[in-house]
């Protein structure tokens, strides 16, 4: 495993830890999109179907379990925890997220490496992950007040896929890996969606001001 891949996984893990910290310590999910969190549950559930059938490494299995358990528990907290759920910005989190699921599934049926159930679902998870952040970005734009934990959560989440891009370049050059257009293009789209957010995040960080996205 190369340094970019490890750094990518660690920022991904860090983003989830930041979100859980917010939920546990502040008992708040203000500014967090339940729609995006539900999409991540679907992403991990469809991608990690191989968890019981294919063994890669201890690291791989543990990380998959961590991502599955944490994504399910975040959704559970936002929906059912008696304090946390009252902080959810229901009225502003109105992105119709199922409208992302259907086109991603159709695209996975059309463009995939091999037409099998597992391969189509794996491809679907990549397409869906690429756009899963959209409800969250829309909610951020509507929020007058973005707290630090929420801003950092989205930043680490974007950094994760950005680092994966370097990982793929490295693997292609150093390990002579094959062309893998489906994850590469999905990952590129996913990272590009954060460009605007990154711009304002870094700007506010430099000026030591509170993060605010223009409406």
């Amino acid at each position: 495993m190369n340094v970019f891949r490890l750094a990518g996984d660690m920022t991904h893990l860090l983003s989830i830890m930041v979100l859980l910290l917010k939920i546990h310590s502040m008992k708040s999910c203000a500014g967090i999109s339940l729609k995006t969190q539900e999409l991540y549950v679907l992403v991990f559930a469809t991608r990690y179907l191989d968890i019981f059938t294919t063994y890669f490494s201890f690291y791989n299995t543990v990380m998959k379990i961590v991502f599955l358990v944490t994504s399910f528990s975040i959704v559970w907290y936002m929906r059912h925890h008696k304090v946390v759920r009252q902080t959810y910005d229901r009225d502003q989190d109105t992105f119709r997220h199922h409208l992302l699921v259907i086109p991603c599934f159709l695209l996975a049926l059309l463009i995939n490496h091999r037409f099998t159930v597992r391969e189509v679902l794996w491809t679907f998870s990549l397409y869906l992950e690429a756009v899963a952040i959209l409800p969250q970005l829309v909610l951020l734009q509507r929020s007058r007040n973005i707290d630090n934990l929420t801003g950092n959560y989205v930043f680490f989440l974007g950094a994760y896929r950005g680092l994966y891009l370097f990982n793929w370049i490295y693997r292609y050059m150093a390990e002579k890996s094959q062309l893998r257009w489906i994850p590469w293009i999905s990952g590129l789209v996913q990272t590009a969606l954060y460009a605007d957010f990154f711009y304002y995040y870094i700007k506010s960080w430099k000026k030591r001001e509170k993060l605010q996205l223009p409406a």
Binding site: R5, D9, H12, D50, T54, F56, S57, N60, M63, K64, F67, H113, R114, E119, W122, Y164, N167, S177, Q178, R180, P183
Partner: peptide, 10 residues
């Protein structure tokens, strides 16, 4: 197998 080999990523 190519499709398996690429799935060691998360």
């Amino acid at each position: 197998d190519h499709s398996i080999a690429s799935k060691d990523e998360l």
